[in-house]
Design a protein around this nucleic acid. Structure first.
Length: 467
DNA sequence: GTCTGTTTAAGAACGT
DNA sequence: ACGTTCTTAAACAGAC
C-alpha cells in the first residue's frame, strides 16, 4: 500500500524564512498559545457536534435536491454515536485516505462508507468539499484556492501588515502538502499573482533592511473599495491531483463511495475572532457594513481602479460581471470580514430562524449570542446535539438562510469557506490537533434524515419557505 | 547562481 | 460567441 510522507520534500525552489519576518509558524504558535487551539481534539469534536452548520447544509440541500446526499450506513451511525459520546475517530478520514494514496475528489462518489465530513458548507452544494481532504497532509489534491487566496491566507496568517515572498512560500508549503510535492512552478504563479493582482501592493524594503526582495501587503485602497462593492467570485478550480503523484494514485483501484457532504461545522474561537478583527482593522473594514445595504451595480463598483500605476495587460478583479459563485479570491477573503461584520450586528437571527421555522427548529432560546450552558442541549427533530457553540452556529446558520433568501446579497457559500479560514487559520504545529477549519469532525447529516421521509419533507417545506 | 519581480502569452473554465 | 477570471509557462532584468 502506498504511503507517502509530506514532511520533508520541498520544491527545489523553496526558500527559507527571513529573519525579520515573523514566520507563519511562529504566528501559528502564537495563535496556539493564546487560543483554544490548545483544546483537545475532543474539544473540537464537541464543538463540531454542537454546530448547527448542518442547517446550512440542510438549506442548501433543500434548494438543490436532498436525495443526492441521503444515505445511511452503520459505519456512519457508529461514528456519529462515537462523536456524540466524545470518542473521536483515531485520525481524520482525509488523512487516512491520503496516507494510503487515496485521491479524494470532493463531491465524487466514493465507495467506502465515508462519513460525511464537511466543515465547509460553502462547497457542498457545488460538489466541492475541501474538508474531505486534509490539504495539510494530503499531497495529492491541489487545494481549491486560487493563488491569490493562498497569498491572502498567508498574509492573514502572518498577522503582519506586510509579508515577504519567501514567507508566503513558506506558509503555503507548510499548510498545503500539495505544494511541497509539486513542481516549484507554482511559485512563479505566486509571483505572477503578486505582480498582477491589484489586491497586492509591493512594499519596498528599506535600505537598512537586509534581505532579498520587498514586502507585500493587501492593498487597503482596494479593500476600501470593497467596502462599497460586492466581492466578485469565480468558480472553484477543478480538483487537481498532484501530477507528481498521479501515477501513484492509479495504484489505488478500490472504488470508494461517499455521500455528498452535508454537514459542516463553524467554529469561532475568541482568538480567531480577534485575529479576524485585526485583519479587518488592517484592511479598514467597516464593522457596520451590511451586505444587504449594498447596491449590486458591479460595473459602477469596479469602474475605478486603484491609482497605482502598473502595467497590466489584464487586471484581476476588474470585471463587473455578476459572478457570485465559487471563487477563492483575495477579494473574497477581504470581503468576508465585512460580511461577517454584518453578522456581528444586532440582527435578530434567532427571531428570523424561529419565525421561519415556526418554532419547529427552535435552536436557541436565548438568541444568537446568548450564553448557553455546557449541558444545554439542542433537540433538533429528535437529533440530540450538544450545544457548546450553538450560539455561534445558530447565528451563522441563520445567516446563510438569510442571505440565501435575499436576492440582493451576493452571498456565496465560499464566503463561509474563506471566512472560516480567516477565522481559524490552521497551525502547522498542530499536526495532531487539527484546527477547526479543515478537519473537524462533524455531525452526520444522514442521521437527521433517518427520521424518515415524511419528517424530511416537512422540514424541506419549512426550509423552502425561507428560500 | 539564485531569488525576486515584471511582463507577455496561451489556454481552460465559467458567466453572460 | 464573447468576455472575464484564473492558471500555467516562459522570458527577462535587477538585486543579493
Amino acid at each position: 500500500m502506498l504511503s507517502l510522507s509530506c514532511t520533508d520534500s520541498r520544491p527545489k525552489g523553496s526558500v527559507g524564512l527571513e529573519e525579520e519576518v515573523v514566520s507563519p509558524a511562529t504566528k501559528a504558535e502564537d495563535l496556539i498559545e493564546s487560543s483554544d487551539f490548545n483544546n483537545s481534539n475532543s474539544d473540537n469534536l464537541d464543538d463540531s457536534l454542537t454546530s448547527l452548520q448542518w442547517l446550512q447544509e440542510f438549506s442548501i440541500l433543500s434548494a438543490s435536491g436532498r436525495q443526492q446526499v441521503i444515505s445511511t450506513n452503520q459505519h456512519q451511525s457508529n461514528l456519529f454515536e462515537k462523536q456524540l459520546s466524545g470518542e473521536a475517530p483515531a485520525s481524520p478520514l482525509a488523512g487516512d485516505l491520503a496516507s494510503i494514496g487515496m485521491p479524494l475528489t470532493p463531491g465524487k462518489p466514493t465507495a467506502t462508507a465515508v462519513p460525511a465530513l464537511c466543515t465547509l458548507p460553502s462547497l457542498v452544494a457545488h460538489g466541492h468539499c475541501p474538508d474531505e481532504v486534509d490539504y495539510k497532509t494530503n499531497p495529492h489534491v491541489k487545494p481549491p484556492y486560487s493563488y491569490a487566496t493562498l497569498i491572502c491566507m498567508a498574509m492573514q496568517a502572518s498577522k503582519k501588515s506586510k509579508i515577504t515572498l519567501s514567507c508566503i512560500y513558506k506558509w503555503i508549503t507548510d499548510n498545503f502538502c500539495y505544494f511541497r510535492h509539486a513542481e516549484p512552478t507554482w511559485q512563479n504563479s505566486i509571483r505572477h499573482n503578486l505582480s498582477l493582482n491589484k489586491c497586492f501592493i509591493k512594499v519596498p524594503r528599506q535600505k537598512d533592511e537586509p534581505g532579498k526582495g520587498g514586502f507585500w501587503k493587501i492593498d487597503p485602497e482596494y479593500a476600501e473599495r470593497l467596502l462599497t462593492g460586492a466581492y466578485k467570485k469565480r468558480r472553484m478550480p477543478p480538483v487537481q491531483i498532484n501530477p507528481v503523484l498521479k501515477n501513484q494514485l492509479r495504484m489505488i483501484s478500490q472504488p470508494v463511495m461517499t455521500t455528498t457532504n452535508v454537514t459542516g461545522v463553524l467554529h469561532v474561537s475568541p482568538e480567531s475572532q480577534q485575529l479576524l478583527e485585526e485583519f479587518e482593522e488592517v484592511i479598514g473594514v467597516d464593522q457596520n457594513w451590511d451586505p444587504r445595504l449594498v447596491e449590486t451595480n458591479s460595473s459602477d463598483r469596479w469602474s475605478t481602479v486603484k491609482g497605482r500605476k502598473r502595467k497590466q495587460p489584464y487586471s484581476y478583479r476588474a470585471g463587473g460581471a455578476k459572478a457570485l459563485c465559487r471563487s477563492s479570491s483575495p477579494l473574497l477573503a477581504m470581503e468576508e470580514p465585512k460580511i461577517l461584520g454584518s453578522f456581528k450586528g444586532n440582527f435578530d437571527w434567532d427571531a428570523l430562524l424561529n419565525s421561519a421555522l415556526n418554532g419547529d427548529l427552535s435552536l436557541n432560546e436565548g438568541g444568537p449570542m446568548s450564553p448557553i450552558t455546557q449541558d444545554q442541549d439542542l433537540m433538533v427533530h429528535s437529533i440530540h446535539v450538544s450545544s457548546l457553540e450553538a450560539s455561534v452556529s445558530n447565528a451563522e446558520s441563520s445567516m446563510l438562510i438569510e442571505t440565501q433568501k435575499d436576492s440582493n446579497v451576493d452571498f456565496d457559500e465560499e464566503t463561509f469557506l474563506a471566512t472560516e479560514f480567516l477565522r481559524s487559520p490552521w497551525t502547522e504545529e498542530e499536526e495532531g490537533n487539527h484546527p477547526d477549519f479543515l478537519c473537524t469532525s462533524t455531525i452526520n447529516i444522514n442521521q437527521l434524515f433517518d427520521l424518515g421521509d415524511s419528517l424530511s419533507d416537512d422540514i424541506d417545506s419549512k426550509i423552502g419557505s425561507l428560500l
